[in-house]
Each structure stands twice: as C-alpha cells, then as structure tokens.
Amino acid sequence: MTSSNLEYAIEARNIIKRFDGEAAVDGIDLNIRKGSIFGILGPNGAGKTTTLRMLLGIIDPDEGERFLLGSPNPISKSHQVGYLPEERGLYQSMKAYDAIAFMGALRGLPLAEGRKRGKQMMADHGLGDAIDKQIRALSKGMAQTVQLLGTIVHEPDLIILDEPFSGLDALNQGKLERLIRGQADKGVTVIFSTHVIAHAERLCEEIAIVAHGKIPFTGKVSTARDRLRPQVHLETRELDGTWRSAIPGDCQPLGHNWHFTLPKSGVEPLLHALIEGKAGIESLSIERPGLHDAFVHIAGEAVARKMEADAAQAAMGEAV
C-alpha cells in the first residue's frame, strides 16, 4: 500500500467494486483537496453513491485503495466526517433539536452539547419556531434542513452529501448552497454528488464526471469548459465582402446574424477583418461554453439526456 498525500482530504486509486460480477465502479481515481468544494456529476446508476460509500468505508472496494483524511481505514475517521446519505430518514416522533443532537452523538458529540448546538443552529437557519416540534410536524424542506444540520453539528472536517438538493424547492436549494459555501469558508472540505449541473457550476472549483462506473474527467470546472471553444454571435449590416474570409466557410447567416465557433486565431484578427472590410458590426458577443456543454462533450449525449431526465423526475417530486 502506498502512502497518503496530506494535501488531500480524499484519495482513491483505481478503486473497483463489482456486484453480481458487474463493475458498478470500474477503476476510479480521485484526489480531492482539503478545504475545497468538490462536485461528483452523473446520472442515477452511474456509480456515484457506490463511490461515496467506498470512500467513507461503508463498503470496501474489491480492488484499489483509498485514503480518507490520510487514513487507509476510513471508519477510523468517522468522528471527523459528516455524511448525508441519499436515503433520508429521521425518527418522526423526535423533536427537531433532539434529532440533530442524536445525529451528533453518533459521531461522538455529547448529547447535552448537541441539544445546545441544535437549538442555536435551527435559530440561525430560520427554524427557531420549529425547535420543539416533532419531525412529523415539519415540512419536507424543514425536515431535510434538520437532517443536514445534524450532519454538521459535530463540526466535521469533511462533509459528504449524496444528492443533497434532491427534493428541495428553489428556496431551500439556495439556502443549502449558502450553507455549503459557509462551511467551505471555515476550511471544511465539502463533497457532494448531483445530477443537476447548475449546482456544481455555481459552487465547485473542481468536479468529477462519472459515467458507466468510470470517470472520463476530473479537474477544474474551467478546464472542462475549455475543452470547447467559445461561440461567436455576430450581427452585421452587410452580408458580403472581404471580411467573409474571417468567418468559417461553413457558417451561413440567419438574416444578418452569424453564429460560429471562435477561430483559433482569436477575436482580434476577426475584429480587424470585420472593421477593415466594412461589415457594419451591429452587435458582437463571445459566449464561453458552460459546464452543461462540457458535460455533453465529455460524457456523451446519451448520458447527458439520462441526467436531464433524472433532474426532471426529481423536480416533479418537489412539486408533489
């Protein structure tokens, strides 16, 4: 077994997990820096949850090795970890602050301290009126917030959230994003899985794209986006002239509007040709590809469609 790099909160090296002879996770490598917000993107069934459970030590890989906070035995670091599983569950008869305290106690936090922190955290997150309510009396969003607070009440160094935005309306999704940023500002490492690209694009500096149990990309969001060239949107008064040589030959106007990939030579030669050739620039904008475009390029259209379908199904569940 090799040693761990203390720069990373999580390391995984060629981890493989099979179920009934089929590889659910097939040779994944990950290095997640301490203090970062890291997103794991992919559709349902891609291997995200299995990967997280192996990183946490809930299940062991069949092959490969992983380190959590420097240890090859992730369970030994459980008191430093906050984990929110995809399958939510709270004791319905518990009072909200007791539920938070109970979750903290599972990670070694004394119950009295957990109750004290739980009440304060609920007040800080706009749930002060629900402190003494039983879980069964809370709305779905409030109950999920309580479970999230229980995940962090013991002040962990590493937080792992499996599909944390699922089932939350837009308002509560925004609150969760702010909470994640707040934890990162304290130096806590936050890892979350999602099938909604927008959350990762807003929150993460680095991501891993998971498809069919493999990771075709891991790295900075900016690096993923840079795999595609920027797009030019141009409107001209004229439709012909010497300036046409600066526009890709297969680009045809729609009216007086042109849409094409920015040439490798950059925007300056393009602008020079348009001005010198008297194209009559009405408007010109350069749009950098978003993370969604990069995801489609890296993972393929079929995987992207599956993930969009998963997101749509989750949104329907929120509306119910």
Rank of each mutant, 00 (worst) to 15 (best):
G39H: 09
T223M: 04
M103A: 11
L106R: 06
E282K: 13
D29L: 02
F67C: 06
V221C: 08
G39C: 11
G126W: 06
F165V: 03
D310T: 15
E238T: 10
N31G: 01
P72C: 11
I281M: 04
L161Y: 05
A315K: 12
E287V: 05
L274R: 04
A170H: 05
P72T: 08
E87G: 14
A299G: 02
A200C: 14
R88N: 09
E308T: 10
A184F: 09
L203C: 04
T242R: 13
V267K: 06
V81S: 13
Q134H: 12
N5Y: 02
L138G: 15
G255N: 04
G70N: 02
D62E: 12
E287Q: 15
G39Y: 15
E87Q: 15
K264N: 13
D60C: 12
S36A: 08
A319I: 12
G128S: 11
N44Y: 06
G45S: 07
I197G: 09
E287I: 09
G57L: 05
V146H: 07
K48E: 04
G277M: 01
T2A: 09
S222M: 02
G280A: 09
R178Q: 12
A96I: 02
K175S: 04
Y8K: 06
G241L: 00
A211N: 14
K77W: 00
F102Q: 10
A279K: 00
F260A: 08
L109R: 01
S166Q: 12
M316R: 13
E235F: 00
I135F: 04
F192V: 13
H259E: 14
G266L: 01
K77V: 05
L55W: 07
S76H: 12
E87A: 13
I15F: 04
G21D: 13
T50M: 14
R202T: 10
G64Y: 13
G45E: 07
K77S: 06
K133G: 00
E238F: 04
G114W: 13
Q313W: 04
A208E: 09
R66P: 14
R225N: 01
K48F: 13
F260Q: 10
A198F: 00
D293G: 06
A315Q: 10
D26F: 03
H79P: 01
D20E: 11
G82R: 02
N44C: 14
